[in-house]
């Protein structure tokens, strides 16, 4: 899918440049952007390292475990058929906790494990209600701190890189609530049909 998007962007750009008589500028434009990409990555590295360092403290201080305990009750409501103490339930809790804290490296393996365990009960490669809801939770961001956005804003010379914190929290909450609601409504409709 990304190959297709990338090729579309590149070919559209080339076609427009040639149609507009700008063909001669194409190599220069692209190479300058490639060099900019390297300097951007270097500027971003500082912000990434800083946030990742703070998040390591969060990880080691056991905040993740407290958060997981806090999540257990609401999650058992959302996933009625999945015992939260079981292996699948544990994987779901740990994945969402890691997502909320922005620990992407920890979230994905746990998410895949949860999906595979939930899939054990699926018939004929059809996603169960729990699998759909879990996927929607993962596909609508639940991250509390948009650290890479803050790092990028700082790299772009923002006077207040963290000023988007509250708007992001509100937007992310609305998005997740709508996703869960849509999931539940569509599940019900599917059952009556």
């Amino acid at each position: 899918m990304m190959s297709f998007a990338w090729a579309t962007l590149a070919l559209t750009g080339v076609a427009f440049a040639m149609a507009g008589g700008l063909g001669g500028e194409v190599p220069g434009t692209m190479l300058r952007a490639a060099m900019d990409a390297v300097s951007l990555a270097i500027r971003l590295a500082g912000g990434f390292a800083f946030w990742s360092g703070l998040m390591a403290i969060v990880e080691d201080s056991g905040l993740a475990r407290s958060l997981a305990r806090l999540l257990a009750k609401p999650l058992s409501r959302l996933f009625p058929g999945v015992p939260m103490a079981g292996e699948a339930g544990q994987a779901i809790t740990m994945n969402l906790t890691a997502n909320i804290l922005g620990l992407g490296n920890a979230a994905t393996p746990m998410g895949l494990k949860a999906m595979r365990l939930l899939g054990g009960e699926a018939r004929d490669a059809v996603a169960t209600d729990a699998m759909c809801l879990f996927l929607v939770l993962n596909a609508s961001s639940v991250q509390l701190l948009p650290t890479s956005v803050i790092a990028l804003r700082a790299a772009s010379g923002s006077a207040e890189p963290a000023s988007i914190l509250l708007p992001t929290l509100i937007a992310t909450t609305i998005s997740t609530v709508v996703g869960v609601a849509a999931c539940i409504l569509l599940t019900r409709r599917g059952r009556h049909a």
Binding site: A127, L135, V136, S140, G179
Partner: peptide
């Protein structure tokens, strides 16, 4: 990862959320 081919309402719900 789960070997699912029919994702039912998962994608529409995710797009609505987005």
């Amino acid at each position: 990862a789960a070997g699912v081919r029919r994702s039912r309402h998962a994608i529409p719900a995710a797009i609505l959320a987005w």
